[in-house]
Amino acid sequence: MFLTRYFSEIAEAVGSLLKGMRMTGYYFTHHKEIITQQYPDNRATLVLPERFRGEVVMTHTENNEHRCTGCTACELACPNGTIKVVTKFEVNAEGKKKKAVDKFVYLLELCTMCNLCIEACPTDAIRMAQTFEHSVYDRSQLTRILNKPDSKLQEGVE
């Protein structure tokens, strides 16, 4: 029947439009749900989501020890060639030579924060930090060495 279809179309259209207007009207009347961050002003109180990925850092304990064994699994996992692990051989107390990390070079300018290196790391030595203010005046400052000077491998990490 033509007329019933005509009017049911109109009723349907009006109903769906009112639904949309109810949604925007809800947002309009609930100012507390505003998600805009007034960024530079609220830097002190800024809370980032837990899973936000800013840059790769290496965790160090208070004794200046890290957990990186220099296995280069992260280097292999990285799709962009962001990480270069320079290794050296250390002589341990028993007189054996052992591979250890010399410089963990991280090229921030190439990194896409894809998290693959963190997943590849067998010893949980690196993690994603939440810092995001990365702008610098010189590109060379984006090349970072993640292991702190004179840091040692944590005991018991193989």
Binding site: T24, Y27, F28, I34, I35, T36, Q38
Partner: peptide
Amino acid sequence: KVSAFMQIRLGPN
């Protein structure tokens, strides 16, 4: 302002 509030933004401030 109205558009901002309807899109959960703040608008010019």
